[in-house]
Design a binder for these strands. Structure first.
Length: 818
RNA sequence: GGGCACGUAGCUCAGCGGGAGAGCACUACCUUGACAUGGUAGGGGUCACAGGUUCGAUCCCUGUCGUGCCCACCA
């Protein structure tokens, strides 16, 4: 795409790019404020943004922060435009290192230089040698004769010439290499540009190239190369040098070569006149803002990256030689004088004020051209030419936080929403966008555009490489969504987004979370089938049933966990917390324990349980909505939410903690789990119902057992529950929350296996005690460890000792039964 | 060359000064009426290696080895 391209051709090209790049071009157009109506093949520029861009340009120009300069840029010879660093891809290339011999004037000797780009030798204006280079420094001050050209070039002393690299002597081509450009500046070397905008040799009418070069046969032969592509020319030049015996040697050399992201062409450092923003000046307030904590990065390690870049920031080239974009608001008069203004009228006014001596204007006696639009248009077309270049898309993007809010107008939106709250973005965009938004925001709004920048993980491919549209290694989210659903994908990304680490997307993980969505769906269906409907009279603070008080307690706790994690930008923790709560608490225990009530006879308990289940499900939908917006919204709708779930208030539960309920249901869960575990271990068939004896149970335990007997019977496959002072002989004995639960099964269980099991438990208890006692027996530990840690260890010891006694007792009884 | 991460269960990854965790995979059992995209139970790890700090190190520090990324260089 060049600016000569017509509209039709442009549209065709955009379509092609859209296909080639997978849509990267769309991002570019969006950053320009262009909206695309594909069906009508129309592009419209946002007028408000255009105005803002012009205003910003003019103000920065008047403040001396925008200027025009002739220096090197990254040039894409295929697109014929300057491009930004963002659009440059480094590609490893197996190339060669050519060692060239430059004759020294007045001797038969040579200085040998090495290059990977021999064609640039035509633009050489010096050879540099390190002043401390023992081997070569005697050559400093001599003059070399550039082969094929005849230019006399000085051998200068410069520390840039590393004695260890290449031949130790470096050819200096200030117009075609960023480092050489700096060397050239230091030694006041001429700039000889030997390429045209398309990367072809430009020699015949090239004054800089021919300056001071004597006419010779060799030069004539070189001029024949004019117009050749740089790579073709490279070959020819090498051939000629070889023929002249000036090719010392060729070394194989692998190095990375910058390629244009969009064109795929090799990028040339190219000498052109471009517009620049002096980024260094506005960078300082941005650095200060981050240092002062007015903008923080999450995770904070990215601050270092931000500082590193901001402190080494280079002038920002903002002009582009393409024709879609915001045209640079600079008009040139007949003598090249620049008039920068927000629109043409202003530019004309400025120009008229300046060109008071131009006769055609002043000659009109008594006619005030400044008040005559027709004459102004004539003047503009006759005498002024607007800059053909457009602005880098990141220039307008940098204004995003305030231009979208109506700036430069003093709109209510601007007052309300600037500064914004959080910027969420990828690390690769910190430099290009975040930094620029900060610079512009601080400059024009006098305030940071956002107090927090959350740098999210990058989704990489299975090889850990960054996915990119141009590289073509993207996992197409649409395909993943087709297979597992958008909720499953979104949840997976959130669950894997641990701070500071990238994501290698795994289909299995997505599948697991699809199953989670299904689980939720089924749980909701179960609730619906059992008449669990939202009840406005239900007050979670005054539930009567222990089970309901328990799930309310657990819900409040899960809610706090999820909220805290979200507020800390720990999305993986939030996702895992809600996952665990829904599956392992609500589905696995609450619904299972509620089944007898929900399917039992009507009554107060049933009504309350229905309401509590519905209340909990509501809380779940709200907590899960950020991660699974679609399924939760749908379930919310099905259960009769009258507004959208996305608009519902986030659940913040106070005063719902209920340790008593937790103790009771926790005991039930532990008891059932222990029995199940031992049954599986002892290989007891599920059809076998075991009697359960609670030995030496406290009054509280007896009470609980009576309340929960039906549940324990059903979920642990227990026949009936009875009480005794001691476990009956020959029974399996389990320690549950400090008390013994016995399954008297003489003859059913394998006594040897049971003894082995108890031995294992005993060993574990003893190991626990041993570890704790070692600590508690250490005087230094008691002296130096914090008190609560020591106290915790004491509690652990007491618990383990009690457990050991119970197990020893169980073993003794087992022996008695044999 | 400079910088930043990371080496924890077979795999993908959490945790990060005081009892090794999840998901998937694996093993055994379960056609119980929300769910087999399910249930129950289980096996599996000297938390890369070597030093150091500490009463105590998977966690902090140093070094080594390995891996990844960014920046620069690439004559």
């Amino acid at each position: 795409g060049s600016r000569e391209m017509g509209r039709e051709a442009f549209i065709e090209r955009v379509w092609q790019w859209k296909a080639e790049s997978g849509g990267a071009i769309i991002g570019q157009l969006k950053r320009l404020g262009a909206s695309c109506d594909w069906s009508r093949e129309r592009f419209t520029m946002d007028e408000g943004l255009s105005r803002a861009v012009m205003k910003v340009f003019v103000e920065l120009y008047r403040g001396g922060l925008i200027y025009k300069d002739k220096r090197l840029v990254n040039w894409d010879p295929k697109l014929k435009t300057a491009i930004s660093d963002l659009e440059v891809q480094q590609v490893e290339v197996r190339g060669s290192l050519w060692h060239l011999k430059y004759p020294l004037e007045g001797t038969d000797e040579f200085v040998v230089v090495a290059t990977t780009r021999p064609e640039t030798m035509l633009g050489d204006t010096a050879v540099a040698i390190h002043p401390q280079n023992e081997r070569l420094r005697h050559l400093i001050g001599e003059t070399a004769i550039l082969p094929l050209v005849g230019r006399r070039i000085p051998i200068v002393a410069d520390e840039y010439a590393d004695p260890e690299k290449g031949t130790g002597a470096v050819k200096i081509t200030p117009a075609h290499d960023f480092n050489d450009f700096e060397v050239g500046r230091r030694h006041d070397l001429p700039l000889v540009n030997v390429l045209d905008v398309e990367g072809r040799l430009d020699l015949t009418d090239n004054a800089a190239f021919l300056d001071g070069v004597p006419v010779s046969a060799a030069l004539e032969e070189t001029l024949v190369l004019h117009g050749l592509d740089r790579f073709v020319a490279r070959k020819k030049i090498v051939e000629r040098l070889e023929a002249l015996g000036l090719l010392d040697k060729i070394e194989p050399n692998t190095h990375s070569v910058p390629h244009g992201d969009r064109s795929g062409a090799v990028i040339e450092p190219y000498l052109t006149d471009q517009w620049y923003v002096d980024a260094k000046t506005p960078a300082q307030p941005a650095i200060d803002a981050v240092r002062a904590g007015r903008t923080v990065f999450v995770p904070e390690q990215w601050q270092a990256t931000f500082f590193d870049w901001m402190e080494h920031i280079q002038p920002w080239c903002i002009s582009r030689q393409i024709w879609w974009g915001h045209r640079i608001p600079a008009w040139y008069g007949p003598d090249g004088k620049v008039f920068v203004a927000e629109d043409e009228d202003d530019a004309v006014a400025d120009a008229l004020a300046h060109y008071t001596e131009i006769e055609e204007i002043t000659a009109e006696e008594g006619h005030d051209i400044a008040a005559d639009p027709a004459r102004q248009a004539w003047f503009a077309s006759e005498y002024l030419h607007r800059d053909d270049d457009v602005l880098d898309t990141w220039f307008s993007s940098a204004l995003w936080p305030f231009s979208t809010l109506g700036w430069p107008g003093e709109t209510p939106e601007l007052k309300r929403f600037y500064p914004t709250s959080v910027l969420v973005t990828g690390f690769d965009i910190i430099f290009f966008w975040v930094a620029r938004m900060m610079m512009m925001g601080l400059h024009f709004m006098k305030e940071v555009p956002f107090p927090t920048v959350y740098i999210h993980a990058l989704v990489r491919d299975e090889r850990g490489q960054k996915m990119s549209k141009s590289k073509g290694n993207v996992i197409d989210p649409l395909e993943v969504i087709d297979e597992y659903g958008a909720d499953a994908l979104r949840f997976t990304l959130a669950a894997m987004a641990a701070q500071g680490r990238d994501i290698k997307l795994s289909a299995q993980r997505v599948e697991g979370n699809r199953n989670f969505a299904t689980k939720l769906w089924n749980a909701a269906r179960f609730a619906e089938l059992n008449g669990c409907a939202r009840n406005p009279d239900f007050d979670p603070h005054h539930a009567g049933e222990v089970l309901n008080r328990w799930i309310i307690h657990e819900t409040a706790q899960a809610g706090r966990e999820v909220t805290a994690a979200l507020e800390a930008f720990k999305f993986n923790e939030a996702a895992n917390a809600v996952y665990r709560f829904v599956w392992n608490v609500f589905c696995d225990w609450y619904l299972e324990l509620a089944k007898p009530v929900l399917t039992g006879p009507d009554g107060a308990a049933k009504n309350e349980t229905r309401a509590a289940a519905a209340w909990t499900l509501d809380a779940i939908l709200k907590l899960l909505h950020p991660f699974m917006p679609f399924v939760t919204e749908e379930l919310w709708n099905v259960t009769g939410g009258d507004e959208l779930l996305v608009l519902a208030a986030w659940p913040l539960h106070d005063g719902l903690d209920d340790p008593a309920a937790e103790a009771e249901i926790g005991w039930v869960i532990d008891l059932i789990t222990a029995i199940r575990s031992v049954r599986a271990e002892m290989n007891i068939a599920p059809v076998t119902l075991l009697p359960l004896v609670l030995a030496g149970a406290s009054a509280e335990t007896r009470e609980r057992a009576r309340r929960w007997s039906a549940y324990v019977q059903r979920l642990a496959r227990v026949a009936d529950i009875s009480f005794a002072d001691a476990a009956p002989p020959g029974s399996m004995q389990l320690v549950v929350r400090g008390e013994v639960a016995a399954l008297p099964l003489k003859g059913v269980i394998d006594l040897a296996a049971e003894r082995a099991r108890l031995d294992k438990e005993m060993a574990k208890a003893e190991a626990d005690i041993g570890r704790v006692e070692q600590k508690l027996g250490n005087a230094d530990f008691l002296k130096r460890a914090p008190e609560d840690v020591v106290e915790g260890e004491r509690e652990k010891r007491a618990e383990a000792q009690a457990r050991k006694i119970k197990i020893a007792d169980a073993l003794k009884r087992l022996e008695g039964a044999v």
